[in-house]
Simulated assay, not measured.
Amino acid sequence: MKRETAMRALVCSAIDGASVAPGDLPRPQPGPGEVLVKVAAAGVNFADTLIVRGQYQEKPELPFAPGLELSGVVEATGDGVTEPASGRRIMALTGLGAFAEYAVAKQSDAFPLPEEMDFDTAAGFAVTYGTAHGALRWHADLQPGETLMVHGAAGGVGLAAVECGKAMGARVIASAGSPEKLKVASDHGADATIDYRQEDVKTRMRELTEGRGVDVVFDPVGGQVFDASLRATAWGGRLVVIGFAAGEVQQIPANILLVKNISVHGMYWGSNRKMAPQRLAEQFAELFDWYKAGRIKPYISHAYALDEGAQALADLRARKTAGKVVIRP
């Protein structure tokens, strides 16, 4: 990939979590099959906080700009690219580099935006709604009338799961760590809530289902929350593991899976970019239809300038935000 003049970016200069600050990086140029995007906004994800600490699956070469996803306008296209054309409004997956004035994305990772969708919404849309939709549609096979338990329900991916669950016809129970966060989940469609700091999660899940247990669990938290959910899942239930925000990777007792005919699915949505890219276009088509119909309403709680990018990562990691957080270069 050719490089030319400098651009402003949020630069990670060491893998220690603290060496993230505004700076300059070479402005990228699109290679074959790529597009150059003038970034309007970039979504902040929990994975970004892991990447700058060396705790993610990928270890980028230093220095680099974090940022998995963005929205903006196509500035230029590489060889072989006819769509999206220059001037097209898009959202795109980058893996790295979104926290900058310009970024490059593969043609297959760039998706034209509906006219109704603004840049802030689009910047935080792909990863959270893609993950939530994929977990519930592909892995959990969530059906109308089933009960869905969403943990971390006020976070970006959790809130997306609440909305996708409602769009798919489920009854949704949401858990979070404060009344304020539970109100956010309720405002976005949750039928019942659990304050995990004040209530016993397993007991409340059983009470809210009259002892039957929930059909599907969406879990980006892990640890003790997963353990409680496993014991409050109905016969034939499905649990989807999204991540381990609690910092503890649980060990799953296979005897419980056997006795209750429960299945546990891992969901690393980003791997579909390589292994099953056709899935993404199909799911975004459905998600964009839901958005245009008002069935999902993404919530952007905080927008930071590029110079405030390190604070954005810190606030997200400390769970001081709700919904989605974006950075505007």
Rank of each mutant, 00 (worst) to 15 (best):
D79R: 11
H302P: 00
V249M: 12
I256C: 03
A185P: 08
R171V: 01
G211K: 13
V162E: 11
P329D: 12
A9C: 12
R206E: 14
T5F: 13
I252Q: 09
N272V: 13
V172T: 07
G266I: 15
V240W: 00
R197H: 07
D227L: 11
A254K: 06
T203P: 00
V81W: 01
A232M: 08
M91Y: 14
F288M: 06
A246Q: 03
K260H: 13
A228C: 12
V221P: 04
T77M: 06
Y304F: 15
F125R: 09
A135Y: 09
Q29G: 11
G222F: 01
M91I: 14
V157Q: 05
Y268S: 11
I262M: 08
A153Y: 15
W290G: 10
E115R: 11
G43L: 14
W235F: 14
G80Q: 04
L258D: 01
P114E: 02
Q224K: 08
P277D: 11
L62Q: 10
L257N: 02
T94G: 10
Q224T: 04
V150K: 14
L68T: 09
F99V: 02
L96F: 13
S108E: 15
G223E: 03
Y56D: 15
M168S: 11
F111H: 12
G222V: 08
D219A: 04
T121I: 05
T5Q: 15
G222H: 06
L148Q: 09
E199L: 05
T209G: 07
A132D: 01
Q224W: 00
P63T: 04
G17A: 08
N255M: 06
A40W: 08
I194P: 06
V241W: 03
G222W: 00
Q55D: 15
S186D: 10
A170F: 06
R88E: 09
T5P: 13
G243V: 15
T121Y: 01
D187T: 09
G17T: 10
E286T: 09
E210H: 14
V264Y: 01
S178A: 04
Q55G: 07
K297E: 05
G124R: 01
G95I: 13
R3K: 11
Y299I: 04
Q250K: 01
A245C: 01
R204V: 04
Q311H: 06
H133R: 00
A314Y: 03
T94C: 14
P329W: 12
T233N: 09
F226M: 13
R273D: 15
P26C: 08
G80P: 01
D195A: 05
